[in-house]
Design a protein around this nucleic acid. Sequence first.
DNA 1: GGAACACTCAAATGGCTATTAAAAACTAAA
DNA 2: TTTAGTTTTTAATAGCCATTTGAGTGTTCC
Lengths: 203, 203
Amino acid sequence: MSNLIIGKHYPTREKIVEIACTLMRKKGFHATTLDDILKELGMSKGSFFYYFKSKEALGYAVIERFRERLMNFTSLSLGQVNKSPMERLNLHFENLINDFSQHECPTGCPFGMLAQELSERHPGFRLRLAEIFDESSGLWQKLLEEAKAIGELYEAVDCKALADFLVGDLQGALLLMKTTQDVGRLKRHLFHTRDYLTSLRAY
Amino acid sequence: MSNLIIGKHYPTREKIVEIACTLMRKKGFHATTLDDILKELGMSKGSFFYYFKSKEALGYAVIERFRERLMNFTSLSLGQVNKSPMERLNLHFENLINDFSQHECPTGCPFGMLAQELSERHPGFRLRLAEIFDESSGLWQKLLEEAKAIGELYEAVDCKALADFLVGDLQGALLLMKTTQDVGRLKRHLFHTRDYLTSLRAY
DNA sequence: GGAACACTCAAATGGCTATTAAAAACTAAA
DNA sequence: TTTAGTTTTTAATAGCCATTTGAGTGTTCC
């Protein structure tokens, strides 16, 4: 009977995904070769294809892994129910800045990177990434609606549109941070994003 | 004597760069092969290497070509001296939306794409792209300072920081447009960007 | 102990891709 | 017409990379 059942623990498969995440985050999908991954693990080709039908399948697994990490990371800040919505948002931005400050070489957002690289060639990846952006936007929307309810945003704000804006805005900030290799860029960018949200406060 | 002197006209070389721009904008740098380019032109490999030392050299030429196009496109709106700064900015945003509306499949920004794809592997590309983002930001900064001078922005605004913000913000908007394949996304995003700038208006 | 299955390995395969080599075709000037 | 210089073509070369094959090792359950 196949051992490849969702929910079971597969150290080898797990390791492949982990290393693939690390390498692909840095170098992207195409530039990360199976050789790179397997050399890092001291494994041979056959093992890889025992766990994955193809490199593309690994790509999807990597995306799902990044998605999980994103959701965990997001809930660290958005889940702080004792804080006000805007306080949670500020905390999230600070967490982002701190997180990227710890890497000497800011890598940017894996979703943004994969979206740029794979959107055209692999519509399946593009669609999945669009869903994840959407899911992320949904979390922001909820937060913004809460904010509106307690007067941290005024009535007329379209929370869904604003959430979409925030998702895009953040992507851009991360791209420029990566291109300039300067976390300060992210910091200064998010200052303006916050400034905008402040301007939407119900007096 | 070599014919490869800057400023002379090279129809063949020109054609290569043009096609490369088209293909790389769509598929990116790595996914665009020399075969792709030359098949499109009905040319053979040897010709390519007569004009370019390597594919990398072509990459730099493509970036410079995109840069020229960006500057031309930008001056269409920012160069309208009879309009107020913020009117010019609005016009620019409208031009962007119209331009991307004409392609059934929005391709996003070539600089953003190349930055994501090549930043890690080719620091030379990354640096050049960072310069171009910076150049672009400089144009915005000038515009914003003009705006401040006539009261379209209030005194305390840091025009350089705000310009950097705009550049990043726009990149993100284009990335999400590309990922969702929806020009409406760009339109809605830029509504918020404008809204923010409006909130910075003097008095 | 042995049969079925899970996993790993080493070695090939074949396609793709950038790059090179060398000859041919064209151009223009002497 | 000769000659030198340019552009282009054809035909390799060599490396990389995803994928396959088939044999091997271990493990579990009867």
